[in-house]
Design a protein around this nucleic acid. Structure first.
Lengths: 161, 161
DNA sequence: AACCGATCATTGACTTTATCAACGGTATGG
DNA sequence: CCATACCGTTGATAAAGTCAATGATCGGTT
């Protein structure tokens, strides 16, 4: 027990990490594809964990955010913007509706379409969740300066659409 | 009468998506969390599609890349670096082994551990896949300048570990 | 040498996400 | 009115992620 020293090399001095950082020298660490996947994994992992007390995950938050934005998104639009299948939107809206956070409103101009709007409780939930996510993001971006954060946002925005 | 253009213009021109870009004004488009998820979705979607003829996906490529790197990764290390469960590594190595691309070699220093190394055919596959992924990345990063691409890589690298 | 707790790869059960086809209700254009 | 396309919904299925348990092996201790 105690602080079990990392097993690895018969090095006289115990190296701190388990030594996978040597892979940073590999080709993979230059692939944007890999880096985004990895960053996203870390980020959403932490965010979901922080969000758990509210009973939602980041995917629900995405829907809630748009529902509370006043932009009156339809489910189809949610699916398109969030890059999710319509059937997944149904499930997400269902659970948010069960939480009393959002409401389906039939679009009077097209009765097939349903507009998702946040209830008062939904707006409240959204704001709580938003605070949490801002903190989570702050943790995730820990080492980045304010300018770098802005740069990152700008760059990601360009390639995300 | 509809102020907003509905879907379905039969214009055989550049058919962009119906107006979901209005959501870019929303709060969500500022969340790094969301942007990385979206960027990653687009990227890996395209990459997997381009990679399909080779019979592998990006997840396999990640393993193959490290296997072909000469860095002699063990499965545990692969899991740690790729942020995947050990059981998933087993499955990935299995399929790559069936393709004849990699080989399990028992680490003589620790017979529990298996080192994954690429075969000659594996190296060949890796190089083909690498070319494809470079092209795919080039598409994904389309609008970014060379300098911006480097910036993005640097920033992602900082937050991915 | 023999035990002990820890680690590695593996398997299996299970949950969550993702993908796809089909269907009722509705709109649009002929 | 009719044909066609679309929206949300359901259900089936596949892929990905999570978790616990196990056999083999290790390191350290007695």
């Amino acid at each position: 027990m105690s602080t079990s020293p990392r097993q690895g090399e018969a090095k006289p001095d115990a190296m701190e990490d388990a030594g996978t950082e040597r892979f940073l020298a590999g080709e993979l660490a230059q692939q944007v594809q890999f880096l985004t996947a990895r960053a996203r994994g870390r980020g959403s992992g932490h965010a979901n964990q922080m969000l758990a007390p509210l009973g939602i995950k980041v995917r629900h938050y995405s829907v809630l955010s748009l529902a509370a934005s006043g932009l009156k998104p339809s489910q189809r639009e949610l699916g398109e913007f969030l890059a999710l299948d319509p059937s997944q939107i149904v499930a997400l809206v269902d659970s948010l509706e069960e939480l009393g956070a959002v409401q389906r409103e039939t679009d009077p101009r097209d009765r097939r379409s349903k507009i998702i709007v946040a209830t008062d409780a939904g707006v409240e939930l959204f704001e709580k969740a938003r605070q949490i996510l801002l903190e989570s993001e702050d943790v995730t971006l820990g080492t980045l300066s304010a300018r770098e954060r802005k740069q990152l946002r700008t760059l990601l925005l360009k390639i995300a659409f």
